[in-house]
C-alpha cells in the first residue's frame, strides 16, 4: 500500500498548543474501503488527529493526504471528498431537519432538485421523516446524532470521519448507527472512527490504531492486539470462599503465573500458556484437594485488557491483584 493509493495517510504529523504536543509524530495509513478505529484514552490526540485530517486544524509539521489530496495544499478538494460527524452534533438547531440537509447539500453545490430528493431519502433512511419539519433543537440526542450522520452522507463521502459517534447513545440508536456505517463501507466508503468504546472498535474496525500521547503506539486487527497484550487467561469460581487460598496456591503452581483473586465473586484468574493441558491438570488437582468448582473458562484477553496493556494501566484497576 503506497501513500498515493491509501485513503488516509499521516506522516509524522505534529500539532502543538503552546508547549504541549497534541500530536507528536502521528503516523497513520488507512487502505480504501476499510474501517480504521482510533482507540485511546481521553486527551490522547484522537480528536486532534481527526480535526487535522478533516482540514479543520492546521498542523505544525509532517504531512497528510486524504482521498488522494494533500490536506495542506488542497483543503477544498479534501472537503469535497469527506464527511465529518463529530462528538457534538454539528447541525443548525434552529432549522428543521429537512432544512438542515438541504442547506448542507446546497453548500456542496448540488443541483437543488438533487438536494431535495437526497434530503427526503436520508430522512427516510434515518427514521426522521416524521420529525423532518421540526427544529433540530427539539430533537432527542439520538435523533440529532442521526441527523448529523445524515448530513455527512448527502454526497457519498470517499472518507468518513466519525469522532466518537455513539457517545451518549442508547443501545438501539447505537446499533442503528453501526448498521448505517457497515452499509456505507460495503459501498466503498473508508471510515476513520475514534472511540472510547472498545466494543465499538471490535465491532466495526478492520484495523485498530491505539493512540497515546499524540502518537500511534500499536496497530493491528483487534485479534492481533489482543494476542500481543499477553496470554489467554483461565478463570474459575470456587464454591466456598474459605478454599480460595488453597485453590490460588494450586493455580499458581500449575500455571506459573500471577493469580488474581476476587473474593467478592470467589473468582481466581491467571494467565495460562498451554491451555488445555493446564486446564486438565488444574481440574484434577482441585478435585484431589476436595475443592468444589462452580465455573471454569478459558478466554482470550479482551480488547479492554489489550488497551490497558498497550497504553499503560493508569486507571488503577490493578487494585484487585493479590499475590497468592
Amino acid at each position: 500500500m503506497t501513500d498515493e493509493t491509501s485513503a488516509v495517510v499521516a506522516r509524522g504529523v505534529r500539532k502543538t498548543y503552546g508547549r504541549t504536543a497534541a500530536l507528536d509524530g502521528f503516523d497513520l495509513t488507512v487502505p480504501p474501503g476499510t474501517v480504521c478505529g482510533l482507540l485511546g484514552p481521553n486527551g490522547a490526540g484522537k480528536t486532534t488527529a481527526v480535526r487535522v485530517l478533516a482540514t479543520l486544524l492546521r498542523f505544525d509539521a509532517g504531512h497528510a493526504r486524504v482521498a488522494g489530496h494533500d490536506v495542506t495544499r488542497h483543503p477544498e478538494r479534501v472537503r469535497a471528498a469527506i464527511g465529518l460527524t463529530g462528538q457534538y452534533a454539528a447541525v443548525d438547531e434552529t432549522l428543521s431537519g429537512r432544512q438542515n440537509l438541504v442547506l448542507f447539500g446546497r453548500l456542496r453545490h448540488l443541483p437543488s432538485r438533487t438536494v431535495r430528493r437526497r434530503a427526503d431519502e436520508l430522512l427516510d433512511q434515518f427514521g426522521l421523516t416524521d420529525a423532518a419539519g421540526r427544529s433540530a433543537g427539539t430533537y432527542s440526542g439520538g435523533m440529532r446524532r442521526r441527523l448529523d450522520l445524515a448530513a455527512s452522507l448527502i454526497t457519498r463521502p470517499q472518507v468518513l470521519f466519525l469522532d466518537e459517534p455513539t457517545t451518549g447513545l442508547d443501545p438501539r440508536s447505537r446499533n442503528g448507527l453501526w448498521d448505517a456505517v457497515r452499509t456505507l463501507v460495503a459501498d466503498g466508503t473508508t471510515v476513520l472512527l475514534t472511540t472510547q468504546y472498545l466494543e465499538e472498535a471490535d465491532q466495526l474496525a478492520d484495523r485498530v490504531s491505539v493512540v497515546d500521547a499524540g502518537r500511534v503506539v500499536a496497530e493491528g486487527t483487534s485479534a492481533e492486539l489482543k494476542a500481543r497484550s499477553g496470554a489467554d487467561r483461565i478463570e474459575l469460581v470456587v464454591r466456598h470462599a474459605g478454599q480460595l487460598p488453597t485453590a490460588a496456591a494450586l493455580v499458581e503452581r500449575i500455571t506459573g503465573g500471577t493469580v488474581r483473586v476476587d473474593r467478592e465473586i470467589r473468582q481466581l484468574s491467571a494467565p495460562v500458556a498451554d491451555r488445555i493441558t493446564a486446564l486438565a491438570e488444574l481440574l484434577r488437582a482441585l478435585q484431589d484437594a476436595g475443592i468444589a468448582v462452580e465455573d471454569v473458562v478459558l478466554r482470550r484477553p479482551t480488547l479492554d485488557e489489550a488497551f490497558l496493556h498497550l497504553t499503560g494501566d493508569r486507571s488503577g484497576r490493578a487494585g484487585t491483584e493479590v499475590a497468592a
Binding site: 471528498a81 456542496r108 448540488l110 437526497r118 434515518f126 454526497t155 457519498r156 470517499q158 448498521d179
Partner: peptide, 16 residues
C-alpha cells in the same frame, strides 16, 4: 433506520 442500498447517491468529488 433501514439499511437500503442507495444507488443514486451523488458521490463526493473534487469537482464540487
Amino acid at each position: 433506520m433501514s439499511t437500503t442500498v442507495e444507488t443514486r447517491v451523488p458521490s463526493g468529488r473534487a469537482e464540487q
